[in-house]
């Protein structure tokens, strides 16, 4: 295999590059991108520490947390018996509709104006500040690379690409005949951008802010929904109450006696739930059997049915 591979090397080695390019462009760009990523992460940690000291009022926190309560009821409602579930459901839907948990119940039907609400403004500025702090280093580095390192071929890509990429990857060098595999420094920047993400996860642990991709997706989401930060909680509450009304409920512990007994081998697994009288009779019968059987027998049954 090494023979085949290296013969393709020989035919395509048509360009000889100065090692100075490697020393002064290839490695520095990579080093700069790694360092800037680490720097961004540390700065985000610093900034994040500052923002968390702002205190929110009790009513504002209650507004958002009560939505989580509704979501918890929807997700885990099957763990509690039907009566408890119905109690909570009715109470919460009534509270949502009457606006009991809103910060200022008087403004229930007005549309929220982000300019006048001071706390909403603060939240929006926070988010925008973070986004800008992320995007700026990327654009600065791209400008720096375009300014200083354009007009020459940097490296050969080991894999072939179609001709469409030629204009994008060979920005400064307009030669119509050259292989698409010879690329300029801008494409090396893009390659680094994608490739260093997992290295950052290695170096900085999870949830690091050196990731360019996450903010780009977050940016695109924010432009899609312009009423971002000062959310209209009344609408959210109403939506949550509708969701709650639609949730079905089936108690998971309904036949727990069945399941427990059949797991320990005291009772065959039945697909159909018996009628109440047979249920009680069967239970008594099995209970009598259980107490009279020897411990060996119990152990054997447990082992038989315990393997899942």
């Amino acid at each position: 295999m090494s023979h085949q591979v290296l013969s393709t090397l020989a035919e395509s080695q048509s360009l000889y590059l100065d090692p100075a390019i490697r020393d002064w462009v290839l490695i520095p760009i990579m080093v700069v991108m790694v360092l800037v990523g680490v720097l961004r992460d540390q700065i985000t940690v610093l900034l994040g520490g500052g923002a968390s000291t702002k205190k929110a009022t009790l009513k504002a926190i209650r507004e958002s947390k009560v939505l989580m309560r509704g979501a918890a009821l929807r997700n885990y409602g099957n763990h509690i018996p039907p009566s408890s579930f119905l109690n909570r459901k009715n109470y919460l839907t009534n509270a949502y509709k009457k606006g009991d948990y809103l910060k200022n119940p008087a403004s229930m039907n007005q549309t929220v104006n982000p300019m006048t609400d001071p706390q909403g403004m603060e939240m929006m500025m926070e988010g925008m500040k973070k986004n800008i702090a992320m995007i700026i280093p990327q654009t600065v580095i791209m400008g720096w690379i375009n300014f200083f390192f354009s007009g020459f071929v940097l490296i050969k890509l080991p894999f072939p690409l179609t001709l469409r990429f030629k204009s994008m990857l060979q920005r400064g060098v307009e030669t119509p005949d050259m292989d698409v595999t010879w690329v300029s420094s801008l494409s090396w920047y893009f390659l680094n951008l994608f490739g260093l993400r997992s290295i950052f996860t290695l170096l900085l642990g999870e949830d690091n802010a050196a990731d360019g991709m996450r903010e780009m997706t977050a940016m695109s989401q924010m432009t899609a929904s312009p009423t971002g930060q000062p959310q209209d909680f009344h609408k959210l509450h109403l939506a949550e109450s509708e969701n709650l009304e639609l949730t079905p409920h089936s108690w998971e512990l309904n036949d727990i006696e069945h399941r427990l007994l059949s797991r320990y081998g005291k009772r065959e697994q039945q697909k159909v739930i018996d009628s109440p009288e047979n249920f009680i009779e069967n239970n008594e019968k099995n209970a009598i059997e259980a107490t009279s059987s020897s411990s060996e027998h119990k152990g054997k049954n447990r082992r038989k049915s315990g393997k899942h």
Binding site: L9, Q13, Y16, L17, D18, P19, I21, R22, L26, M30, I155, K156, L157, P158, F159, W188, L191, N192, F194, G195, L196
Partner: peptide, 15 residues
């Protein structure tokens, strides 16, 4: 792909 390109460039392409 990043490291493949990097090492290929350093070892095979440059003089």
């Amino acid at each position: 792909v990043l490291f493949w390109t990097l090492l290929y460039g350093i070892v095979h392409v440059y003089d």
